[in-house]
Design a protein around this nucleic acid. Sequence first.
DNA 1: TGGCGTTCATTCGTATACAAACGATCGCGC
DNA 2: GCGCGATCGTTTGTATACGAATGAACGCCA
Lengths: 166, 166
Amino acid sequence: MNARLVPVVSSFATKREDIGQERSPQDEDYTLERQVGHLLRRAHQRHAALFQERIGSAALTPMQWAALFSLVRHGPTTQNKLGRLTAMDPATTQGVVRRLVARGLVARSADPTDRRTRLLSATEGGRALVAATLPIARAISDATLAPLDEAERAIFLKLLSRMAFA
Amino acid sequence: MNARLVPVVSSFATKREDIGQERSPQDEDYTLERQVGHLLRRAHQRHAALFQERIGSAALTPMQWAALFSLVRHGPTTQNKLGRLTAMDPATTQGVVRRLVARGLVARSADPTDRRTRLLSATEGGRALVAATLPIARAISDATLAPLDEAERAIFLKLLSRMAFA
DNA sequence: TGGCGTTCATTCGTATACAAACGATCGCGC
DNA sequence: GCGCGATCGTTTGTATACGAATGAACGCCA
């Protein structure tokens, strides 16, 4: 039901040699390695790998953790609103919440003000899990930013924020 | 078989109001909006949306485009090597290549030096499609970086590169 | 040359991610 | 009070993404 807990962290990187830039004679100016999209994807991949490596014992995926955390932080919430808080569309949110409910980390209760919705809230176990893993989450953010020094991190986060929320 | 061509670009962002930071009284220092992982994910989401919006007429997904481009740039290549060039694991590469072959953009031929593999190469149509869409790809990278000025872009790309390849 | 560790491509299972369409409900305006 | 556009949650279909396991082929070394 969940991603492997503490996988081997293979990162599928074998045979390093063929990454070498064998650019055409006229030395093309467009390279995958220099495109923002490619770099964003790879940086995100690296973060996800670090996440799985360190929070595997809790058997939570990044999005499951984010949803559970948001629920704890914001209190009882509607499913679509939870999706907006974590930047997931409704269809994706559905699956993430379904798995959290199946694991007993989240509970649904009736919403007295709206018959279309059910209020989601973290269970006792869910709250405990967030409390226990929050330090790990901080460590993961640190590890992800490890390639940068303090000053660079501040700059990077500021610029990345603008890229994300533009 | 492919993602919708030129979708409505809804970006599933309705009801903007509930993003407002309603932080606890003690003003927590850990917020989703400030974590690298969350920001990387959202920036990548935004890039993907821009990609779909602009290259939709070609009905190519970002990874299909990257794979096809790499094939054109590097010449006949093995499937796993193509995966390494584009940072996809073998299982993912399988699906992307299968769809490109089904559309006649990529062809497989026997590899005289290795009976386990088949050499992949872009067809005439594949090469033409890359040539036609390369300008669009440049524009997408530009659009993604639009929130930053020239100086900031250089800094951001340098730092992001380190984050991606660390 | 025979064996064995490596690599290749594939398959299966699970988890995001999103478009589109759907039925139910809401709420606002008239 | 009714009507209609907006929102809620769900489902379906497609495309990444990756772990794990598999059978075939490779290549190197004793």
